[in-house]
Computed example of a mutant assay.
Amino acid sequence: MLRSWPFVILSNPIIASILNIGGLWILYTTGLYGLMQQNILLHALVHVHVFIAGYLFTASMIYMDPTSHQFSFMFRAIVFAISLAGHDILSKYIYAHPPSGVIKAQAENGGMLMYYAGDAIDLLLICILCHQWFRATRPRESLVQLQE
């Protein structure tokens, strides 16, 4: 299943970022947020999408398991940086322009939570990505010993 073409497409960092960050933009900048509050099935579907998209995004940025279609660290870092910007811009947008039906004070608190909590999670993901990058590019001890 992990080698199937749908999974290869969905696990591309660009596609995963669009599903994750783009889904949040659609949720908070359209009438979807208000509709979600009125329909329990839609509410559940949105939460499932947010969970799966976030998981897929994380899995496409940092590889914990071997995968047959890995992207370079540089490519993932660039896509990650763009995604972080999209997330931070959205949190500031929510702070200034609450979704329909949301009280301004609640939107401000939600925007700040999204911004600062997102940064904490992003920092953790950045550390893991950089650690993996470092481990993949450092010279192996056995090679260093052979060269001496």
Results as ranks from 00 to 15, higher is better:
2 L>W: 09
3 R>D: 11
5 W>I: 05
5 W>R: 06
5 W>G: 02
7 F>G: 03
8 V>W: 02
9 I>W: 14
9 I>A: 14
12 N>W: 10
12 N>Q: 11
12 N>V: 10
13 P>Q: 06
15 I>D: 01
15 I>R: 00
17 S>A: 10
21 I>D: 00
25 W>M: 05
28 Y>F: 14
29 T>S: 14
32 L>G: 09
33 Y>A: 03
34 G>P: 02
36 M>Q: 15
39 N>G: 04
39 N>T: 02
40 I>Y: 08
41 L>D: 08
41 L>T: 15
41 L>P: 01
42 L>R: 05
44 A>P: 00
45 L>S: 11
46 V>H: 05
48 V>D: 01
48 V>M: 06
49 H>Q: 09
54 G>N: 08
54 G>T: 12
56 L>V: 15
58 T>R: 05
59 A>L: 06
62 I>T: 14
62 I>D: 10
64 M>N: 08
65 D>H: 15
68 S>H: 09
69 H>R: 13
71 F>P: 00
72 S>G: 11
72 S>W: 02
72 S>F: 04
76 R>Y: 10
77 A>V: 06
79 V>G: 01
81 A>I: 09
84 L>D: 14
87 H>R: 01
87 H>F: 03
92 K>M: 12
92 K>L: 13
92 K>S: 05
93 Y>E: 06
95 Y>G: 00
96 A>P: 00
96 A>H: 08
96 A>S: 11
96 A>K: 09
98 P>K: 01
100 S>E: 09
102 V>H: 01
104 K>N: 07
105 A>H: 08
106 Q>C: 03
107 A>G: 04
108 E>G: 01
113 L>F: 06
114 M>P: 00
114 M>I: 00
115 Y>G: 00
117 A>L: 07
118 G>M: 02
121 I>N: 07
124 L>I: 15
125 L>T: 09
125 L>M: 12
128 I>Y: 08
128 I>Q: 07
129 L>F: 13
131 H>P: 01
131 H>R: 10
133 W>P: 01
136 A>Q: 13
142 S>I: 14
143 L>H: 12
144 V>Q: 11
144 V>L: 15
145 Q>R: 07
146 L>R: 12
146 L>N: 12
